[in-house]
Design a protein around this nucleic acid. Structure first.
Lengths: 141, 141
DNA sequence: ATGGCTGCAAAGCCTTTGCAGGTTG
DNA sequence: CAACCTGCAAAGGCTTTGCAGCCAT
């Protein structure tokens, strides 16, 4: 189903964004890889097909996808951001041993958001949450 | 109530860590400032009293406090880490307009952690969560 | 053809590191 | 007195930026 990629590309084109091969490849990689790659991982993954592509191009396009709302940026404690083309509401569970990230679906915690509003006087529009643990592979069975 | 700072310093001393004036000042600043300062903010706040102090000293000591479990590091989307000397279980609400961070106490979401375990097969040891919104001051009344 | 996009290189931040000299306990 | 810590400067990693040339539309 590359339909999702096509939809996204069409939407971009409608907004006057050119569909270059690099752009196409980066978005496809993000949408089809189940991982949550860093900019550099994307760069290295596409290097074989685009030997002359620049890291700057990866960053430029990621920024563009972010602004278009097609990609989400994940900033964990480690040095580099990770990118997720699944912008639906979901949470992440991270293995502290190997870094693997698994999606986790759960009803959004709107009730807790309301409690946060009451407690702080802020108007709360959203939240972020992730879980830390150890995956099956790293537990050793 | 400098008791908390004293306790922490005593604990460090017991573990063979020297209590230098810089170290004392950084820890005191972290524990008494209600904010969640960056390394640079700490540096600039102490500059008047320690005109020759190096940023490296701030980083070195923050790292040491982290390893001693006296301080928590907060990595949000922005470029620099923030540090919190309140290591008790609590959440943060962040104003997206001015960056202000307010604490928010709520019972830990252990039930959701268990759901995450069931859903992913990971063993989950903890989570992190923060809320995004706009504070009263920035809402303009 | 023309405006946007790429690739390159340099620069910008934040953070870490190596080392010499000073200070704590 | 000895080990540890500070301050300085340089280096390291990620990301952004400026600019010339190229290419999609």
């Amino acid at each position: 189903m590359t339909t999702r990629v096509q939809n996204a590309l069409d939407q971009l084109k409608t907004n006057g964004v050119r569909i270059t091969p690099q752009r196409h490849a980066i978005l496809t990689y993000l949408m089809e890889s189940m991982g949550h790659p860093t900019a550099d991982e994307i760069y290295r993954a596409l290097e074989p097909r685009f030997p002359s592509m620049s890291v700057a191009t990866v960053y430029n396009n990621l920024k563009m996808f972010l602004e278009a709302g097609m990609v989400r940026e994940l900033t964990y404690g480690d040095n580099s951001s990770r990118f997720d083309a699944d912008v639906s509401d979901h949470y992440h569970v991270i293995c502290q041993s190997c870094g693997k990230i698994r999606d986790f679906n759960y009803e959004p915690l709107t009730e807790v958001e309301r409690k946060a509003e009451q407690s702080t006087g802020f108007r709360v529009f959203g939240h972020r949450m992730e879980f830390y643990g150890v995956c099956n592979d790293c537990r050793g069975h």
